[in-house]
């Protein structure tokens, strides 16, 4: 149980919404049948974009600090765990406070459950379940060197800005080289918005007014994408 824990990378642009990660995650015994990964359709009326979300394991976890029962703990590897069963009172503070929308409260068993980066697997040198089944490498587990070699056109960052709040995470997100932090903005337009359609309309108005960055300016794709193929050793390791 002492294998070094490697790095976890999310590459949103690679998600194809296949939900393999959701299915894989559901197989874990610690949360029997319930997935801790979310795959959301971002704006289904206008775009095919889907986004996977696992726990980002914040270095200063808002969920743990906002827990009134002291039930959420971070381990020596920086993994933030599901709430301790004897303590959790299912108040839902963590669910509402988490900046990434990750924790899930199960009322019927009075516990908060969340992604723990497959603690049982990663601490024994295996990859988290979702990364073994992701066909596109949107969820990737490995070393920083591997990642840099495989995805030269992106870089991993772990800094997020929610309004004025900066959050650093254990997990990495792949972004273009000119981006240093992911800025999550919810401009004034959200004030009084009342649902997805309203939001889409307001976002459209907002971008028409403020200008949309030219969609034609895209970074060139690498000629071949060897990383998109599952690693040959992966299957053997998974089995």
């Amino acid at each position: 149980m002492s294998a070094p824990v490697k790095e976890f990378f999310i590459d949103f642009q690679r998600c194809i919404g296949c939900n393999a990660c959701v299915a894989g995650c559901s197989e874990c015994h610690t949360h029997r049948g319930k997935p801790m990964v979310s795959v959301d359709k971002v704006d289904p009326a206008h775009s095919a974009q889907t986004a996977p979300m696992v726990c980002m394991h914040c270095k200063e976890p808002t969920c743990a600090l906002s827990c009134p029962a002291d039930a959420i703990k971070m381990d020596e590897n920086g993994i933030v765990h599901s709430s301790l069963k004897p303590r959790c009172i299912a108040c839902r503070n963590c669910e509402i406070a988490c900046p990434f929308g990750v924790p899930k409260i199960s009322e019927e068993i009075q516990q908060m459950q969340k992604c723990d980066m497959c603690f049982d697997r990663t601490s024994a040198g295996k990859k988290p379940m979702c990364t073994t089944v992701c066909p596109t490498g949107a969820l990737f587990y490995g070393t920083m060197e591997e990642m840099k070699r495989l995805r030269p056109h992106s870089k991993p960052i772990n800094k997020w800005r929610f309004g004025k709040q900066v959050i650093e995470t254990k997990l990495w997100v792949m972004v273009p080289h000119d981006v240093d932090e992911v800025v999550v903005d919810w401009p004034e337009l959200l004030n009084g918005a009342s649902g997805p359609i309203d939001l889409a309309v307001k976002l459209k108005e907002y971008f028409e007014k403020h200008g949309v960055p030219d969609p034609e300016i895209r970074e060139p794709l690498p000629e071949s994408m060897p990383e998109a193929r599952p690693d040959e050793t992966e299957e053997a390791e998974f089995l």
Partner: peptide, 16 residues
């Protein structure tokens, strides 16, 4: 999660 995905879309120059 939806707004985070949007933020990423913006970081990727609205590729999506």
């Amino acid at each position: 999660r939806i707004l985070i995905a949007r933020a990423h879309s913006i970081a990727r120059k609205h590729k999506f």
